[in-house]
Amino acid sequence: MSTNLYTINVNLKGRKCLVVGAGNISERKIQSLLECAANVSVVSPKFKTSILALQGHPNLTLITRPFEESDLNGMFLVISATNDRELNSKIGTICNNKNILINVVDKPEICSFFVPSILRRGDLSISISTGGKSPTLASKIKQDLSNQYGNEYERYVNILGEIRERIKTEVKDPVKRKDILNNLMEINLYELIKLHEDGLIKERIHKCISL
């Protein structure tokens, strides 16, 4: 029986993260970590041109040499993505012994976390994970969902967030607050956003809040 994984979103801003390896997979991991404002160190004997092009990023440090165990000192999270399976296993074992979060790209059995396939629409994040069993399936599901949840969801989420903050201030009754927020799901705001019907959007929001 497999262990259930506890799904969380982690704030990596300012956290020290290490990527070991500098291939295509590593490059994607580096980009994702930088997008989350992590402080990223990458260690590898050599780097591809596209990774070297990132060198000016203030949160990125490239270390041109083989991995050393001391590279793990102070790290919050580690991703090992080299083409050396023995080295990846070694790094995974050390990190698990040191209670450092570790993802080894070719050995899910020693990972303490998995990186899901993520569909982002602004502050809306939809994560798809197969627990490391089939990243290809996760990518396919992400593509299917991208057709269902279009770019308009970014604005939709922002509008809902603004309304929620307004209601928290203006409506003191928690039951009424909940009713208003539930009613917002029924007034087809998303369809109006797709049609750029800003006037109707304001009208329906006002009517919903005034009930």
Rank of each mutant, 00 (worst) to 15 (best):
D106H: 11
K140P: 02
P66R: 04
P116T: 08
S80I: 05
N182L: 11
N188M: 03
V19N: 02
K46A: 13
L200T: 02
K29Q: 07
L119S: 07
S210P: 00
G92Y: 13
I163G: 05
R85H: 09
F67S: 03
T82M: 11
N158K: 13
N151G: 00
K16C: 13
L18A: 08
E186A: 09
S44H: 07
M75F: 01
M185I: 09
K178T: 07
N103V: 07
V10D: 15
Q55D: 05
C111A: 06
K107P: 00
G74D: 13
N147M: 10
I163M: 06
G56A: 14
Y6S: 11
L12R: 05
S89D: 11
G23L: 02
F76P: 09
S32M: 12
T7K: 13
S89N: 08
I79V: 15
L87R: 13
T3D: 06
S127L: 12
C208W: 02
D123N: 14
I163D: 00
V175H: 06
V104Y: 11
G132Y: 08
N99W: 11
P116H: 14
R204V: 05
L101A: 15
Q148G: 02
D198A: 07
E69L: 12
T136A: 14
N24S: 07
E152D: 11
L192K: 11
N4D: 14
